[in-house]
Design a binder for these strands. Structure first.
Lengths: 239, 239
DNA sequence: GCGCCGATCTATCAAATGTTAGCGCGCTCT
DNA sequence: AGAGCGCGCTAACATTTGATAGATCGGCGC
Protein backbone atom coordinates (compact mmCIF):
# COMPACT_ATOMS: atom_id res chain seq x y z
CA UNK A 1 0.00 0.00 0.00
CA UNK A 2 2.94 2.32 0.62
CA UNK A 3 4.36 1.42 -2.77
CA UNK A 4 4.05 5.01 -4.03
CA UNK A 5 5.95 6.31 -1.02
CA UNK A 6 8.73 3.78 -1.51
CA UNK A 7 8.94 4.64 -5.20
CA UNK A 8 9.03 8.33 -4.37
CA UNK A 9 11.62 8.28 -1.59
CA UNK A 10 13.52 5.41 -3.14
CA UNK A 11 14.22 7.22 -6.39
CA UNK A 12 16.80 9.42 -4.64
CA UNK A 13 18.71 6.83 -2.64
CA UNK A 14 18.16 3.20 -1.73
CA UNK A 15 15.76 2.41 1.10
CA UNK A 16 16.75 -0.43 3.39
CA UNK A 17 14.19 -3.02 4.47
CA UNK A 18 14.52 -1.68 7.97
CA UNK A 19 13.68 1.81 6.76
CA UNK A 20 10.70 0.49 4.85
CA UNK A 21 9.44 -1.16 7.97
CA UNK A 22 9.97 2.03 9.96
CA UNK A 23 7.85 3.82 7.38
CA UNK A 24 5.29 1.06 7.66
CA UNK A 25 5.11 1.65 11.43
CA UNK A 26 4.92 5.37 10.88
CA UNK A 27 1.94 5.41 8.55
CA UNK A 28 -1.37 4.48 10.14
CA UNK A 29 -4.98 5.50 9.86
CA UNK A 30 -6.32 5.57 6.35
CA UNK A 31 -8.89 8.20 5.42
CA UNK A 32 -10.84 9.22 2.36
CA UNK A 33 -11.89 12.60 1.06
CA UNK A 34 -14.25 13.56 -1.73
CA UNK A 35 -13.34 16.12 -4.39
CA UNK A 36 -13.54 19.63 -2.97
CA UNK A 37 -13.07 18.61 0.66
CA UNK A 38 -10.34 20.12 2.80
CA UNK A 39 -7.73 17.53 3.74
CA UNK A 40 -5.96 19.96 6.06
CA UNK A 41 -7.47 23.26 7.17
CA UNK A 42 -5.62 26.55 7.11
CA UNK A 43 -4.78 27.70 10.62
CA UNK A 44 -4.98 24.23 12.12
CA UNK A 45 -2.20 22.59 14.14
CA UNK A 46 -2.13 19.00 12.89
CA UNK A 47 -0.69 16.28 15.11
CA UNK A 48 -0.05 14.03 12.12
CA UNK A 49 1.15 14.51 8.56
CA UNK A 50 -0.72 13.25 5.54
CA UNK A 51 0.50 11.08 2.68
CA UNK A 52 -1.50 10.69 -0.52
CA UNK A 53 -2.18 7.11 -1.57
CA UNK A 54 -4.57 7.93 -4.39
CA UNK A 55 -5.94 11.08 -5.93
CA UNK A 56 -4.85 14.64 -6.60
CA UNK A 57 -4.62 17.36 -3.96
CA UNK A 58 -3.41 20.95 -3.83
CA UNK A 59 -2.13 23.47 -1.33
CA UNK A 60 -3.95 26.77 -1.55
CA UNK A 61 -4.49 30.14 -0.04
CA UNK A 62 -7.56 32.37 -0.36
CA UNK A 63 -7.26 36.16 -0.41
CA UNK A 64 -9.68 38.75 0.90
CA UNK A 65 -11.19 39.39 -2.54
CA UNK A 66 -12.03 35.70 -2.83
CA UNK A 67 -9.18 34.93 -5.22
CA UNK A 68 -7.63 31.52 -4.71
CA UNK A 69 -4.10 30.47 -5.59
CA UNK A 70 -2.71 26.96 -5.54
CA UNK A 71 0.92 26.78 -4.48
CA UNK A 72 1.45 23.11 -5.28
CA UNK A 73 -0.17 20.00 -6.69
CA UNK A 74 0.27 16.75 -4.79
CA UNK A 75 0.21 13.31 -6.36
CA UNK A 76 0.26 9.79 -4.87
CA UNK A 77 3.40 9.22 -2.79
CA UNK A 78 3.57 12.89 -1.77
CA UNK A 79 3.39 14.11 1.80
CA UNK A 80 1.05 17.07 1.59
CA UNK A 81 2.03 18.55 4.95
CA UNK A 82 5.16 16.83 6.17
CA UNK A 83 6.51 20.26 7.13
CA UNK A 84 3.64 20.73 9.62
CA UNK A 85 5.65 18.38 11.84
CA UNK A 86 8.05 21.29 12.51
CA UNK A 87 6.14 24.33 11.26
CA UNK A 88 3.31 23.46 13.69
CA UNK A 89 0.67 25.86 12.36
CA UNK A 90 -0.76 25.53 8.84
CA UNK A 91 -0.60 28.88 7.07
CA UNK A 92 -2.62 27.50 4.15
CA UNK A 93 -5.09 24.73 3.36
CA UNK A 94 -4.87 21.50 1.43
CA UNK A 95 -7.83 20.52 -0.73
CA UNK A 96 -8.69 17.28 -2.52
CA UNK A 97 -9.10 17.99 -6.24
CA UNK A 98 -10.34 14.46 -6.86
CA UNK A 99 -11.45 11.71 -4.48
CA UNK A 100 -8.39 11.11 -2.29
CA UNK A 101 -7.29 8.21 -0.19
CA UNK A 102 -4.65 9.24 2.35
CA UNK A 103 -2.76 7.76 5.29
CA UNK A 104 -1.45 9.52 8.37
CA UNK A 105 1.94 9.84 10.07
CA UNK A 106 1.93 10.65 13.77
CA UNK A 107 4.20 13.57 14.56
CA UNK A 108 5.50 11.84 17.67
CA UNK A 109 6.60 8.90 15.52
CA UNK A 110 8.18 11.25 13.03
CA UNK A 111 10.11 12.80 15.87
CA UNK A 112 11.37 9.45 17.00
CA UNK A 113 12.59 8.75 13.47
CA UNK A 114 14.65 11.94 13.67
CA UNK A 115 16.10 10.66 16.95
CA UNK A 116 16.97 7.17 15.76
CA UNK A 117 17.13 6.94 11.98
CA UNK A 118 19.37 9.67 10.58
CA UNK A 119 19.46 8.39 7.02
CA UNK A 120 15.70 8.07 6.80
CA UNK A 121 15.44 11.50 8.38
CA UNK A 122 17.62 12.89 5.62
CA UNK A 123 15.40 11.27 3.00
CA UNK A 124 12.29 12.80 4.54
CA UNK A 125 14.08 16.14 4.77
CA UNK A 126 15.05 15.73 1.12
CA UNK A 127 11.42 15.18 0.25
CA UNK A 128 10.54 18.60 1.67
CA UNK A 129 13.55 20.14 -0.09
CA UNK A 130 12.31 18.91 -3.45
CA UNK A 131 8.99 20.45 -2.54
CA UNK A 132 10.88 23.72 -2.19
CA UNK A 133 12.71 23.22 -5.48
CA UNK A 134 9.35 22.77 -7.20
CA UNK A 135 8.12 25.98 -5.58
CA UNK A 136 11.13 27.84 -6.96
CA UNK A 137 10.49 26.48 -10.42
CA UNK A 138 6.88 27.65 -10.17
CA UNK A 139 8.02 31.13 -9.15
CA UNK A 140 10.26 31.31 -12.20
CA UNK A 141 7.44 30.07 -14.41
CA UNK A 142 4.99 32.61 -13.01
CA UNK A 143 7.40 35.48 -13.28
CA UNK A 144 9.25 35.03 -16.53
CA UNK A 145 7.73 32.34 -18.72
CA UNK A 146 4.99 32.99 -21.25
CA UNK A 147 1.70 31.49 -20.11
CA UNK A 148 1.85 28.79 -22.77
CA UNK A 149 5.36 27.90 -21.66
CA UNK A 150 4.21 27.87 -18.04
CA UNK A 151 1.42 25.42 -18.84
CA UNK A 152 3.77 23.27 -20.90
CA UNK A 153 6.20 23.25 -17.99
CA UNK A 154 3.47 22.16 -15.60
CA UNK A 155 2.52 19.27 -17.87
CA UNK A 156 6.17 18.19 -18.15
CA UNK A 157 6.55 18.28 -14.39
CA UNK A 158 3.35 16.38 -13.72
CA UNK A 159 4.14 13.74 -16.29
CA UNK A 160 7.59 13.11 -14.83
CA UNK A 161 6.35 13.07 -11.23
CA UNK A 162 3.48 10.74 -12.05
CA UNK A 163 5.76 8.45 -14.03
CA UNK A 164 7.93 7.92 -10.94
CA UNK A 165 4.94 6.57 -9.03
CA UNK A 166 3.63 4.63 -12.02
CA UNK A 167 0.52 6.69 -12.59
CA UNK A 168 1.05 7.34 -16.29
CA UNK A 169 -0.05 5.09 -19.12
CA UNK A 170 2.05 5.53 -22.21
CA UNK A 171 2.30 9.26 -22.79
CA UNK A 172 -0.99 9.99 -20.99
CA UNK A 173 -1.93 10.85 -17.46
CA UNK A 174 -5.11 11.56 -15.59
CA UNK A 175 -5.60 15.21 -14.65
CA UNK A 176 -8.92 15.56 -12.81
CA UNK A 177 -9.13 19.37 -12.73
CA UNK A 178 -11.38 21.91 -14.40
CA UNK A 179 -10.01 24.84 -16.36
CA UNK A 180 -11.06 27.09 -13.48
CA UNK A 181 -8.91 25.07 -11.10
CA UNK A 182 -6.01 25.14 -13.51
CA UNK A 183 -6.42 28.91 -13.66
CA UNK A 184 -5.85 28.96 -9.91
CA UNK A 185 -2.57 27.15 -10.50
CA UNK A 186 -1.24 29.54 -13.12
CA UNK A 187 -2.78 32.63 -11.55
CA UNK A 188 -4.94 33.51 -14.55
CA UNK A 189 -8.58 34.30 -15.22
CA UNK A 190 -10.65 31.38 -16.45
CA UNK A 191 -11.14 33.00 -19.82
CA UNK A 192 -7.47 33.52 -20.38
CA UNK A 193 -6.68 30.05 -19.09
CA UNK A 194 -8.92 28.75 -21.83
CA UNK A 195 -7.04 30.80 -24.44
CA UNK A 196 -3.71 29.45 -23.23
CA UNK A 197 -4.93 25.86 -23.29
CA UNK A 198 -6.27 26.36 -26.81
CA UNK A 199 -2.92 27.74 -27.92
CA UNK A 200 -1.03 24.77 -26.54
CA UNK A 201 -3.54 22.39 -28.08
CA UNK A 202 -3.30 24.09 -31.45
CA UNK A 203 0.45 23.76 -31.42
CA UNK A 204 -0.23 20.04 -31.56
CA UNK A 205 1.96 18.94 -28.66
CA UNK A 206 -0.77 17.85 -26.29
CA UNK A 207 -4.34 16.60 -26.30
CA UNK A 208 -6.59 17.00 -23.31
CA UNK A 209 -10.03 15.44 -23.09
CA UNK A 210 -12.05 13.60 -20.45
CA UNK A 211 -9.64 14.74 -17.78
CA UNK A 212 -6.81 12.92 -19.51
CA UNK A 213 -3.74 14.70 -20.87
CA UNK A 214 -1.85 13.03 -23.69
CA UNK A 215 1.56 14.28 -24.72
CA UNK A 216 1.74 14.04 -28.49
CA UNK A 217 5.24 15.47 -28.93
CA UNK A 218 7.37 15.23 -25.81
CA UNK A 219 10.44 16.81 -27.40
CA UNK A 220 8.55 19.87 -28.57
CA UNK A 221 6.62 20.19 -25.30
CA UNK A 222 9.89 20.15 -23.41
CA UNK A 223 11.26 22.79 -25.78
CA UNK A 224 8.28 25.09 -25.31
CA UNK A 225 8.60 24.65 -21.55
CA UNK A 226 12.40 24.83 -21.43
CA UNK A 227 11.93 21.91 -19.07
CA UNK A 228 15.03 20.69 -17.25
CA UNK A 229 14.21 18.02 -14.63
CA UNK A 230 17.35 18.69 -12.56
CA UNK A 231 15.26 20.39 -9.87
CA UNK A 232 13.36 17.14 -9.22
CA UNK A 233 16.59 15.42 -8.06
CA UNK A 234 15.75 12.18 -9.79
CA UNK A 235 19.20 10.66 -9.53
CA UNK A 236 19.92 7.89 -7.10
CA UNK A 237 22.97 8.70 -4.98
CA UNK A 238 23.99 8.58 -1.33
CA UNK A 239 22.16 11.28 0.64
CA UNK B 1 30.10 36.46 14.51
CA UNK B 2 27.36 33.86 14.20
CA UNK B 3 24.99 36.14 16.10
CA UNK B 4 22.61 36.43 13.14
CA UNK B 5 22.42 32.66 12.81
CA UNK B 6 21.67 32.24 16.51
CA UNK B 7 19.00 34.94 16.32
CA UNK B 8 17.50 33.30 13.26
CA UNK B 9 17.42 29.69 14.46
CA UNK B 10 16.83 30.70 18.06
CA UNK B 11 13.60 32.53 17.30
CA UNK B 12 11.78 29.23 16.77
CA UNK B 13 13.02 27.23 19.75
CA UNK B 14 15.77 27.67 22.31
CA UNK B 15 19.32 26.79 21.29
CA UNK B 16 21.44 25.11 23.95
CA UNK B 17 25.04 26.19 24.49
CA UNK B 18 26.12 22.82 23.18
CA UNK B 19 24.16 23.38 20.00
CA UNK B 20 25.68 26.81 19.62
CA UNK B 21 29.11 25.31 19.91
CA UNK B 22 28.23 22.62 17.36
CA UNK B 23 27.21 25.39 15.01
CA UNK B 24 30.47 27.18 15.79
CA UNK B 25 32.40 24.07 14.78
CA UNK B 26 30.29 23.67 11.69
CA UNK B 27 30.87 27.12 10.25
CA UNK B 28 34.36 27.74 8.97
CA UNK B 29 36.00 29.61 6.12
CA UNK B 30 34.84 33.15 5.69
CA UNK B 31 34.61 34.61 2.19
CA UNK B 32 33.62 37.87 0.60
CA UNK B 33 31.81 38.65 -2.62
CA UNK B 34 31.26 41.92 -4.43
CA UNK B 35 27.85 42.99 -5.71
CA UNK B 36 26.98 41.08 -8.85
CA UNK B 37 29.23 38.11 -8.16
CA UNK B 38 27.90 34.57 -8.10
CA UNK B 39 28.09 33.07 -4.61
CA UNK B 40 27.01 29.66 -5.86
CA UNK B 41 26.89 28.72 -9.53
CA UNK B 42 23.96 27.00 -11.20
CA UNK B 43 24.80 23.40 -12.06
CA UNK B 44 27.57 23.15 -9.47
CA UNK B 45 27.77 20.45 -6.81
CA UNK B 46 28.87 22.32 -3.69
CA UNK B 47 30.63 20.45 -0.88
CA UNK B 48 29.68 23.12 1.63
CA UNK B 49 26.65 25.27 2.33
CA UNK B 50 26.80 29.03 2.64
CA UNK B 51 25.54 31.26 5.45
CA UNK B 52 25.23 35.02 4.97
CA UNK B 53 26.91 37.10 7.64
CA UNK B 54 26.44 40.46 5.93
CA UNK B 55 24.84 41.67 2.75
CA UNK B 56 21.91 40.77 0.53
CA UNK B 57 21.85 37.81 -1.87
CA UNK B 58 19.28 36.18 -4.14
CA UNK B 59 18.56 32.86 -5.77
CA UNK B 60 17.89 33.18 -9.47
CA UNK B 61 17.34 31.38 -12.71
CA UNK B 62 17.99 32.70 -16.23
CA UNK B 63 15.81 31.64 -19.16
CA UNK B 64 16.76 31.19 -22.80
CA UNK B 65 15.47 34.64 -23.78
CA UNK B 66 17.76 36.21 -21.18
CA UNK B 67 14.98 36.88 -18.70
CA UNK B 68 16.02 36.51 -15.08
CA UNK B 69 13.79 35.64 -12.14
CA UNK B 70 14.75 35.75 -8.49
CA UNK B 71 13.11 33.05 -6.41
CA UNK B 72 14.23 34.34 -3.02
CA UNK B 73 16.06 37.09 -1.21
CA UNK B 74 18.55 36.12 1.47
CA UNK B 75 19.48 38.27 4.44
CA UNK B 76 22.10 37.90 7.18
CA UNK B 77 21.56 34.71 9.18
CA UNK B 78 20.12 32.88 6.16
CA UNK B 79 21.60 29.74 4.67
CA UNK B 80 21.46 30.38 0.93
CA UNK B 81 21.97 26.76 -0.08
CA UNK B 82 21.52 24.57 2.95
CA UNK B 83 19.43 22.24 0.79
CA UNK B 84 22.43 21.57 -1.49
CA UNK B 85 23.60 19.30 1.33
CA UNK B 86 20.92 16.81 0.22
CA UNK B 87 19.88 18.06 -3.21
CA UNK B 88 23.50 17.73 -4.36
CA UNK B 89 23.22 19.61 -7.66
CA UNK B 90 22.33 23.31 -7.81
CA UNK B 91 19.50 23.86 -10.27
CA UNK B 92 19.86 27.65 -9.95
CA UNK B 93 22.45 30.25 -9.00
CA UNK B 94 22.90 32.51 -6.00
CA UNK B 95 24.09 36.05 -6.62
CA UNK B 96 25.31 38.75 -4.26
CA UNK B 97 23.11 41.83 -4.64
CA UNK B 98 25.37 43.86 -2.37
CA UNK B 99 28.86 43.17 -1.03
CA UNK B 100 28.43 39.95 0.93
CA UNK B 101 30.41 38.36 3.72
CA UNK B 102 29.62 34.65 4.07
CA UNK B 103 30.83 31.65 6.02
CA UNK B 104 30.83 28.00 4.98
CA UNK B 105 29.43 24.78 6.44
CA UNK B 106 31.09 21.56 5.36
CA UNK B 107 28.56 19.01 4.15
CA UNK B 108 30.37 16.23 5.97
CA UNK B 109 29.99 18.13 9.23
CA UNK B 110 26.34 18.78 8.46
CA UNK B 111 25.87 15.07 7.96
CA UNK B 112 27.44 14.31 11.30
CA UNK B 113 25.04 16.76 12.94
CA UNK B 114 22.17 14.74 11.47
CA UNK B 115 23.75 11.60 12.98
CA UNK B 116 24.34 13.01 16.45
CA UNK B 117 22.23 16.06 17.15
CA UNK B 118 18.57 15.38 16.34
CA UNK B 119 17.17 18.56 17.83
CA UNK B 120 19.64 20.77 15.99
CA UNK B 121 18.91 18.76 12.86
CA UNK B 122 15.23 19.55 13.25
CA UNK B 123 16.02 23.24 13.62
CA UNK B 124 18.10 23.20 10.44
CA UNK B 125 15.35 21.28 8.70
CA UNK B 126 12.88 23.85 9.98
CA UNK B 127 15.02 26.60 8.48
CA UNK B 128 14.61 25.04 5.03
CA UNK B 129 10.89 24.55 5.66
CA UNK B 130 10.44 28.24 6.32
CA UNK B 131 12.26 28.84 3.10
CA UNK B 132 9.58 26.76 1.44
CA UNK B 133 6.80 28.63 3.24
CA UNK B 134 8.21 31.89 1.90
CA UNK B 135 8.27 30.42 -1.59
CA UNK B 136 4.59 29.51 -1.27
CA UNK B 137 3.77 33.01 -0.14
CA UNK B 138 5.61 34.41 -3.15
CA UNK B 139 3.65 32.13 -5.47
CA UNK B 140 0.39 33.40 -4.03
CA UNK B 141 1.61 36.98 -4.36
CA UNK B 142 2.66 36.50 -7.97
CA UNK B 143 -0.54 34.74 -8.93
CA UNK B 144 -3.32 36.56 -7.16
CA UNK B 145 -2.18 39.80 -5.57
CA UNK B 146 -2.18 43.14 -7.35
CA UNK B 147 1.34 44.28 -8.11
CA UNK B 148 1.15 47.04 -5.52
CA UNK B 149 -0.01 44.54 -2.94
CA UNK B 150 2.77 42.17 -3.95
CA UNK B 151 5.39 44.87 -3.43
CA UNK B 152 3.85 45.87 -0.12
CA UNK B 153 3.92 42.24 0.94
CA UNK B 154 7.58 41.96 0.03
CA UNK B 155 8.41 45.02 2.12
CA UNK B 156 6.48 43.64 5.09
CA UNK B 157 8.30 40.33 4.81
CA UNK B 158 11.72 41.91 4.50
CA UNK B 159 11.12 44.24 7.39
CA UNK B 160 10.06 41.42 9.68
CA UNK B 161 12.89 39.12 8.63
CA UNK B 162 15.49 41.86 9.01
CA UNK B 163 14.11 42.86 12.37
CA UNK B 164 14.72 39.35 13.72
CA UNK B 165 18.42 39.67 12.92
CA UNK B 166 18.58 43.26 14.11
CA UNK B 167 19.18 44.84 10.72
CA UNK B 168 16.43 47.42 10.88
CA UNK B 169 16.69 50.85 12.43
CA UNK B 170 13.37 52.19 13.59
CA UNK B 171 10.96 51.62 10.73
CA UNK B 172 13.71 51.68 8.11
CA UNK B 173 15.86 49.05 6.49
CA UNK B 174 18.60 49.01 3.91
CA UNK B 175 17.56 47.59 0.53
CA UNK B 176 20.55 47.72 -1.82
CA UNK B 177 18.76 46.82 -5.06
CA UNK B 178 17.96 48.73 -8.23
CA UNK B 179 14.45 48.91 -9.64
CA UNK B 180 15.58 46.54 -12.41
CA UNK B 181 16.60 43.97 -9.80
CA UNK B 182 13.33 44.43 -7.97
CA UNK B 183 11.55 43.83 -11.28
CA UNK B 184 13.28 40.45 -11.40
CA UNK B 185 11.77 39.69 -8.00
CA UNK B 186 8.19 40.55 -8.93
CA UNK B 187 8.47 39.30 -12.50
CA UNK B 188 7.71 42.67 -14.10
CA UNK B 189 9.27 44.90 -16.73
CA UNK B 190 11.43 47.70 -15.37
CA UNK B 191 9.00 50.32 -16.61
CA UNK B 192 6.05 48.73 -14.91
CA UNK B 193 8.06 48.12 -11.75
CA UNK B 194 8.65 51.86 -11.66
CA UNK B 195 4.91 52.51 -12.01
CA UNK B 196 4.14 50.12 -9.15
CA UNK B 197 6.74 51.70 -6.89
CA UNK B 198 5.35 55.15 -7.66
CA UNK B 199 1.86 53.99 -6.79
CA UNK B 200 2.96 52.59 -3.43
CA UNK B 201 4.94 55.75 -2.73
CA UNK B 202 2.00 57.97 -3.63
CA UNK B 203 -0.22 56.09 -1.23
CA UNK B 204 2.06 57.47 1.47
CA UNK B 205 2.85 54.23 3.27
CA UNK B 206 6.52 53.97 2.38
CA UNK B 207 9.45 56.13 1.40
CA UNK B 208 12.38 54.75 -0.53
CA UNK B 209 15.53 56.73 -1.22
CA UNK B 210 19.26 56.08 -1.10
CA UNK B 211 18.63 52.36 -0.99
CA UNK B 212 16.76 52.77 2.26
CA UNK B 213 13.11 51.85 2.67
CA UNK B 214 11.15 53.58 5.42
CA UNK B 215 7.75 52.34 6.43
CA UNK B 216 5.62 55.40 7.14
CA UNK B 217 2.40 53.60 7.99
CA UNK B 218 2.90 50.00 9.03
CA UNK B 219 -0.77 49.33 9.64
CA UNK B 220 -1.80 50.51 6.21
CA UNK B 221 1.11 48.75 4.50
CA UNK B 222 0.08 45.52 6.16
CA UNK B 223 -3.49 46.12 5.03
CA UNK B 224 -2.50 46.69 1.40
CA UNK B 225 -0.35 43.57 1.54
CA UNK B 226 -2.84 41.46 3.51
CA UNK B 227 0.31 40.49 5.39
CA UNK B 228 -0.03 37.69 7.94
CA UNK B 229 3.36 36.64 9.36
CA UNK B 230 2.17 33.15 10.35
CA UNK B 231 4.16 31.61 7.51
CA UNK B 232 7.41 32.87 9.02
CA UNK B 233 6.88 30.67 12.12
CA UNK B 234 8.12 33.32 14.48
CA UNK B 235 6.83 31.69 17.65
CA UNK B 236 9.17 30.00 20.06
CA UNK B 237 8.00 26.48 20.88
CA UNK B 238 9.45 22.97 21.14
CA UNK B 239 10.35 21.65 17.69
C1' DG C 1 -37.93 12.70 -22.47
C1' DC C 2 -37.15 17.12 -20.26
C1' DG C 3 -34.90 20.51 -17.88
C1' DC C 4 -31.17 21.94 -15.00
C1' DC C 5 -26.42 22.72 -14.22
C1' DG C 6 -21.56 22.81 -14.52
C1' DA C 7 -17.98 23.18 -17.77
C1' DT C 8 -15.99 24.70 -22.04
C1' DC C 9 -15.61 27.99 -25.39
C1' DT C 10 -16.31 32.63 -27.83
C1' DA C 11 -16.99 37.57 -28.47
C1' DT C 12 -16.33 42.23 -27.09
C1' DC C 13 -14.51 45.77 -24.66
C1' DA C 14 -11.63 47.60 -20.70
C1' DA C 15 -7.58 47.54 -17.93
C1' DA C 16 -3.03 46.03 -16.93
C1' DT C 17 1.48 45.27 -18.55
C1' DG C 18 5.30 45.31 -22.00
C1' DT C 19 8.28 47.64 -25.53
C1' DT C 20 10.89 51.13 -27.32
C1' DA C 21 12.72 55.46 -26.91
C1' DG C 22 14.54 59.23 -24.70
C1' DC C 23 15.57 62.77 -20.89
C1' DG C 24 17.94 64.21 -16.75
C1' DC C 25 20.41 63.52 -12.63
C1' DG C 26 24.31 62.27 -9.95
C1' DC C 27 28.16 59.39 -10.00
C1' DT C 28 33.07 58.29 -11.18
C1' DC C 29 37.03 58.46 -13.98
C1' DT C 30 40.33 61.08 -16.19
C1' DA D 1 35.78 70.58 -15.75
C1' DG D 2 34.07 67.33 -19.02
C1' DA D 3 32.79 62.68 -20.68
C1' DG D 4 30.67 58.54 -19.86
C1' DC D 5 27.48 55.76 -17.47
C1' DG D 6 24.13 53.60 -14.48
C1' DC D 7 19.86 54.58 -12.73
C1' DG D 8 15.33 56.61 -12.13
C1' DC D 9 11.70 58.37 -14.50
C1' DT D 10 8.31 59.46 -18.33
C1' DA D 11 5.81 59.20 -22.87
C1' DA D 12 3.59 56.81 -26.61
C1' DC D 13 2.07 52.89 -28.44
C1' DA D 14 1.52 47.59 -28.76
C1' DT D 15 0.29 43.41 -26.61
C1' DT D 16 -1.44 40.67 -23.04
C1' DT D 17 -4.76 39.77 -19.70
C1' DG D 18 -9.18 40.52 -17.34
C1' DA D 19 -14.33 41.31 -16.98
C1' DT D 20 -18.74 40.57 -18.55
C1' DA D 21 -21.87 38.28 -21.18
C1' DG D 22 -23.70 34.68 -23.54
C1' DA D 23 -23.76 30.34 -26.59
C1' DT D 24 -23.09 25.37 -26.76
C1' DC D 25 -22.61 20.89 -24.97
C1' DG D 26 -23.08 16.85 -22.11
C1' DG D 27 -24.25 14.61 -17.79
C1' DC D 28 -27.65 13.82 -14.40
C1' DG D 29 -31.81 13.84 -11.72
C1' DC D 30 -36.78 13.87 -12.08
Amino acid sequence: MLESLFLNLGQHDSLSDEEKSLLGDLMAGERSFTAGQDIVASGSRPVYSTLILDGLAARYKVLADGGRQFSSLQVPGDFVDLYAFLLKTMDHGVIALSPCRVILADHSKLRSITERAPHLTRLLWLDTLIDGAIHREWIVAMGRRSKVSHLAHLFCELFVRLEVVKRTSGMSFHLPVSQAELADVLGLSVVHMNRVISALRNSGVIAWANHTVTILDWRKLQQIAEFDPTYLSMTREPR
